[in-house]
């Protein structure tokens, strides 16, 4: 599969200004779930700064708080206590409009592909562009087909998800997340549905985006095969960061 011998910068739409000091800066972050006696703390006093263009892997056992951290940093959950600055914007207390504006600068890759079954691969990828306004809606074909080519689906542009394999669907979802030229990509087990080679290629693509476009990636994974590509590996246990290290190369 020819994934990495193409110019990914062609996918760029309007470049969005990114924070100079680090797109994700977290200080004293605490988070709880439930209320009353059932209230349970999920995150304890998290401090974390992630540099621009880096590929950071979050690891930890189930329930360790990594997904909570990911959703808080990705403006998908309200910050209860502490500070989360995303692309220079404080999320604690931010209103819905601010959160929506922030989200438009992000790319999300979920464990499940969540593609619209009624839309073709091209149309699904287009959905990642249309949110950026009329110009993006007008000029969607070239970047959408380019991204699908990048993830190896150049010959499946007009396929409906029902006619694609699980791995192919996940690659369409990756293309959808990246087509809007995001400043930060949040990925939750993006390689879980992929075979070894495809998984490696997707993470390589994210890594290359970091190098060439300064795209920052925060990725939750249990896939040991991709750890060596990370710039940082953060390990969480019971709501706390217990290890923050460089990968063994």
């Amino acid at each position: 599969m020819k994934l990495f011998n193409k110019d990914i910068t062609q996918t760029s739409t309007a470049a969005l200004p990114a924070d100079q000091q680090g797109p994700i800066r977290i200080k004293g972050l605490n988070h709880w779930f439930g209320s009353g006696e059932a209230r349970k703390q999920a995150l304890f006093d998290i401090d974390l700064t992630i540099e621009r263009g880096s590929l950071v892997i979050l690891m930890g056992a189930s329930g360790s708080g990594k997904t909570t951290l990911l959703t808080l940093a990705g403006c998908l959950r309200d910050v209860q206590d502490g500070s989360v600055q995303l692309l220079g914007q404080e999320l604690n207390g931010a209103d819905e409009n601010v959160l929506v504006a922030c989200r438009r600068r992000l790319g999300f890759i979920f464990q499940a592909h969540n593609l619209h079954e009624s839309l073709t691969a091209m149309q699904n990828v287009r959905m990642g562009l249309d949110v950026h306004g009329p110009q993006a809606r007008k000029d969607w074909k070239a970047p959408a087909s380019h991204l699908l080519n990048l993830v190896g689906l150049g010959d499946r542009l007009d396929y409906l998800p029902g006619n694609l394999s699980g791995g192919q669907k996940q690659r369409v979802a990756v293309a959808r997340a990246l087509v809007g030229n995001p400043d930060v990509v949040f990925a939750d087990e993006p390689t879980a549905a992929l075979d070894k080679e495809s998984g490696h290629q997707v993470v390589s693509l994210l890594k290359r985006l970091g190098t060439e476009r300064n795209t920052t990636t925060l990725m939750v994974t249990h896939d040991n095969k991709v750890l060596e590509m990370a710039d940082r590996i953060i390990t969480m246990e019971e709501g706390r960061i217990v290890k923050d290290e460089l990968p063994h190369r």
Binding site: G74, V100, A101, R104, L106, F110, N114, M127, V131
Partner: peptide, 15 residues
């Protein structure tokens, strides 16, 4: 039936 798809689009900034 499309709640997950809509949630995905919400995540990327659709209002």
């Amino acid at each position: 039936d499309h709640l997950r798809e809509y949630a995905t689009l919400k995540a990327v900034g659709y209002k």
